[in-house]
Simulated assay, not measured.
Amino acid sequence: MNWDDIRLFLAVARAESLTGAGKALRLDPATLGRRIARLEETLGTALFVRSPRGYGLSEAGERLMARAIHAEQALQEGAEELREQEGQLTGSVRVGAPDGVANFLLPQVTAALCDANPGLEVQIVAQPRVFNLSRREADMAIAVSPPKTGRLTVQKITDYHLHLAATRSYLQQHPPIRELADVAGHRIVGYIPDLIFDSELDYLSEVGAARVTLASNSVVVQLNWLRTGAGLGIVHDFAMPFAPGLVKVLPDRLALRRSFYLVRHGDDRRNARLSRFAGLLAEGVRAELARLEAL
């Protein structure tokens, strides 16, 4: 068994399909399937459970994956140490984040990090869900609540604030909102209830709305609805500068506060490069959030 076999195994395990892994590796899925079958034959055990849904890891595959990830990290760290320029970060770092953070905070922060570290490459995975760091879907992730399980390290980055908002034109064309009870008579923009991936994002009870008329799992889609005057919705204060037509509604009656957390795999505490990047990322997010909320 050689490293190339392990590299292919990891790609299939993460993508859970030959097609997805083949795209990532730029390798024909049929060829990849034969390579995986040959690896299983060499090891004398099935690494995957095949089904119509794709390739899931067997018990033997789970054990191999844990060791393969350690080997992958060791190789990456060794290569990066050799390439690293004095005082600068190099190599690739993948950050997972909800799409609000990914769209309104991380672009500015990570661009500044790359300006200061020309050998650094940053990938942002913007998806409204919890990331599986054990499977290395990302090197680190930003979350809206600290995870309760898993071999993870969690660092609180900062608090952030949200308010009810709408366009002036919407407010002028619809019944006045003087109390929270008045919200019930308005069209609400928000999350799809059964796709809310974290209870911290369930704002309905605090808004006092019975249902969401225009719903999306994407914060950006919600913001664009609100920008068109489609209704009322909860908006991050740090996103308000990107939608200058929006105004806060009942800011003295309804003000929400939530927190961002930086989550990393427990084994990465010994990785000086990722630890340094994590510190700079958290510092940058705090500064950029404070700047945008003050506008």
Rank of each mutant, 00 (worst) to 15 (best):
residue 273 R to A: 10
residue 78 G to V: 09
residue 92 S to N: 03
residue 235 V to E: 10
residue 155 Q to I: 00
residue 25 L to G: 02
residue 72 E to T: 03
residue 239 A to G: 06
residue 263 V to L: 07
residue 108 Q to T: 13
residue 161 H to C: 01
residue 244 P to I: 13
residue 249 V to D: 07
residue 82 L to S: 06
residue 280 L to D: 14
residue 99 D to M: 08
residue 60 A to Q: 12
residue 206 E to R: 15
residue 178 R to T: 02
residue 156 K to D: 02
residue 238 F to L: 03
residue 111 A to Y: 08
residue 130 V to E: 15
residue 267 D to S: 14
residue 137 E to Q: 15
residue 108 Q to W: 05
residue 219 V to L: 06
residue 121 E to A: 12
residue 120 L to M: 12
residue 211 R to C: 08
residue 99 D to S: 10
residue 216 S to L: 11
residue 259 S to W: 02
residue 102 A to S: 14
residue 66 A to Q: 13
residue 89 L to V: 02
residue 250 L to M: 01
residue 86 E to M: 09
residue 34 R to I: 09
residue 117 N to T: 10
residue 226 L to F: 04
residue 256 L to N: 09
residue 133 L to T: 11
residue 19 T to R: 15
residue 5 D to K: 01
residue 74 A to H: 10
residue 250 L to Q: 01
residue 54 G to P: 03
residue 237 D to Y: 04
residue 60 A to I: 00
residue 13 A to H: 06
residue 40 E to S: 02
residue 83 R to A: 12
residue 7 R to Q: 13
residue 223 L to D: 14
residue 96 G to R: 05
residue 114 C to W: 00
residue 261 Y to R: 09
residue 14 R to P: 02
residue 41 E to I: 06
residue 187 R to Y: 02
residue 197 F to N: 09
residue 70 H to L: 14
residue 45 T to W: 01
residue 37 A to D: 15
residue 254 L to C: 07
residue 102 A to T: 07
residue 160 Y to V: 04
residue 175 P to K: 12
residue 127 Q to H: 13
residue 145 S to W: 09
residue 218 S to V: 12
residue 277 F to R: 07
residue 51 S to M: 11
